[in-house]
Design a protein around this nucleic acid. Structure first.
Lengths: 358, 358
DNA sequence: ATGAAAGCGCTAACAC
DNA sequence: GTGTTAGCGCTTTCAT
């Protein structure tokens, strides 16, 4: 099970050839300095005399030395690993974002020498996986992404004193002290609604999720407020359903039976696409006849015909800020505000543009 | 070693409160056994007398002890971490798959206590990131996903004696000795083409990538062979372009100027959606008038109107097999064959079904 | 079946 | 500035 070749001997004189990667001792021997000096060259180069530093650095390069992570981690109690629980979308929307988000996260984290540790857990238990990683000191911190109403991860991690940042505001406790970051869903829906109003639509419907979804409620409020401000009564224009193309298609048909409705703002691209389906079935033109805007700017919104306008979350920025905040938390530095809210933007495609023809 | 029982602190009286997670020593003290016995309880439970085991186990549970990963890793030279370089899609196709693939991978790996370590690297340098992780013994093995023609990762890792499995066959060296797994793209295209033939289409076009793409060539060969077997001359029916909706849309228009062409098999869903765009612009019905099949069964294929048939890779299976092979490699066990080929399946939606009407 | 000793590779203290 | 010493928490001989 272990290495067949016993790499470095227990005998004091044994050091035939380095069977594994070079260690600090190898470098020290080669450079004719002590191990500590090599360590300093790595971690506190300013302590070394320039000529020594150069010499050590040269040996490091020549040998292709990289400090052993396990040893360093054991000593410094820092793994430079950020834990992220990764599992199938819980609320339909998150999945579409995950890819973009992960990429940005990995790229940003690597700038400071951190890597992402992906783990999974029992879908029934939102805490599964966290505790074990924590107790085994496998990660420095967590990024928590699935902070829907009632999810206990934040409280759990806070109680255990584990460093973490949440992507998603603490819906249930607005005054929560932990660090978090979120995208303003209401502002996104506001953007979408205003855009449709500018396109000349008045009676604009909302297709959203069940009332239990706080994210959904937040987004919906943006639509409702904007409509009211424009002097349009939203009563009867809001529909609640599950995040599913076919459910949205049928709901849209129902809504469209009222010919005064000419616009849809949707809580997700999935729902927006459902509206597009209904329009296709009715032989009506998206954009020209009925304006439709989705949410999250998924790949499907971009490639579907004739293009679905959508509210886009600044995920690259989210990832950067998340990592930045994490560094503050890890350094025990004070954070100006526990929460930070980012503004989404609107990507306009033909589904909400009046003046285009195939 | 001054005080074997006295962890942390050089002074006997230092730090009464357990500042960190419990260690093996804590458990040993609490259970009244030596540290090694606790270690054995964890790693070789059969060595312990049942009653001792029970007692130790009870203390472990009560204290919530998990072995420190860094220490264990330092000692056993195994991190239980699998490295995966994660970056924006290199060939258009991979991105759509990544999400499903990653989920399966994380879930499968966790069954044996392994986690996924995501890292990134300079997009210009396909080897960036691997070497450092290797030298710092941060991961046990790699899963390499971007093995297009000419990508040097496999050779590099093999030369360094690093354990890894490739998702993607060694295009340039068919006899390569390293472990790999791939999905049979030609078989997928064959499935799609045969399906369109069965739907009554004869002159079936191919929309694929540039000749330089080996994956693309492989898939194309499935289309070409099947057409030939059916007695249809594929000459002039194959188009090469970049993986882009609009390029595909324009190419499809061009192809459709020949009214004898009534089917499209595409190297990706992106291209398939481009064909759908062209059909919409021409007022022709997908499925009823022209059959279209994409590749990779992306989310967009599922939610777009009227549903895009697509060849689906068994990514869950891929992930499982990858991990299984990795375990063999890590255990230095012989692998029956270096390469393993998995068959894709066809997901039929309305874009290739003749008998449906909106 | 259990215990003692050694050491994986590194860095934080403290000499010199 | 550089070297010496002492562990971080764990597993692996080797005794008992």
């Amino acid at each position: 099970m272990t290495h067949p070749t016993d790499r470095r001997g227990h005998r004091p004189d044994a050091r035939p050839q380095p069977a594994g990667p070079p260690t600090l001792a190898t470098v020290a021997d080669e450079a004719g300095v002590s191990r500590q000096t090599v360590s300093n060259a790595l971690n506190n180069p300013e302590l070394l005399r320039p000529e020594t530093l150069t010499r050590v650095q040269e040996v490091i390069d020549r040998l292709g030395y990289s400090p052993n992570r396990a040893a360093r981690q054991l000593r410094t109690r820092s793994s430079h690993l950020i834990g992220l629980r990764f599992e199938p979308a819980l609320e339909g929307t998150s999945n579409a974002l995950m890819d973009r988000f992960l990429h940005s996260l990995v790229a940003t984290a690597s700038e400071t020498g951190h890597h992402l540790l992906l783990f999974s857990g029992d879908p029934e238990d939102p805490l599964d996986g966290y505790d074990d990683l924590l107790r085994s000191t496998a990660v420095d911190a967590f990024i928590v992404t699935d902070t829907y109403a009632g999810t206990p991860q934040s409280g759990f991690l806070r109680d255990r004193g584990a460093p973490f940042v949440a992507f998603g505001r603490p819906w249930d406790e607005p005054g929560a002290a932990h660090a978090w970051l979120d995208v303003d869903g209401a502002a996104g829906a506001r953007l979408a609604t205003r855009h449709l109003l500018e396109q000349g639509h008045r009676r604009i419907a909302w297709l959203g999720w069940e009332r239990s979804s706080r994210i959904g409620q937040d987004r919906r409020s943006g639509w409702e407020d904007t409509l009211r401000e424009a002097g349009v009564d939203p009563t009867g224009l809001g529909v609640r359903l599950t995040d599913n193309v076919d459910a949205a298609r049928m709901a849209a048909h129902h809504v469209l039976d009222d010919p005064t409705v000419t616009g849809f703002v949707c809580a997700s691209d999935t729902l927006g696409l459902g509206v597009l389906h209904a329009l296709a079935e009715r032989g009506r033109q998206p954009g020209a006849d009925v304006g439709v805007v989705g949410f999250d700017d998924s790949a499907a919104a971009q490639v579907t015909w004739p293009g679905l306008s959508s509210v886009r979350q600044p995920l690259e920025r989210v990832a950067q800020d998340l990592v930045e905040i994490l560094h503050l938390v890890l350094a025990h530095k004070p954070i100006a505000e526990p929460g930070r809210m980012l503004a989404p933007s609107l990507v306009v495609r033909r589904s909400s543009l009046r003046g285009w023809t195939p």
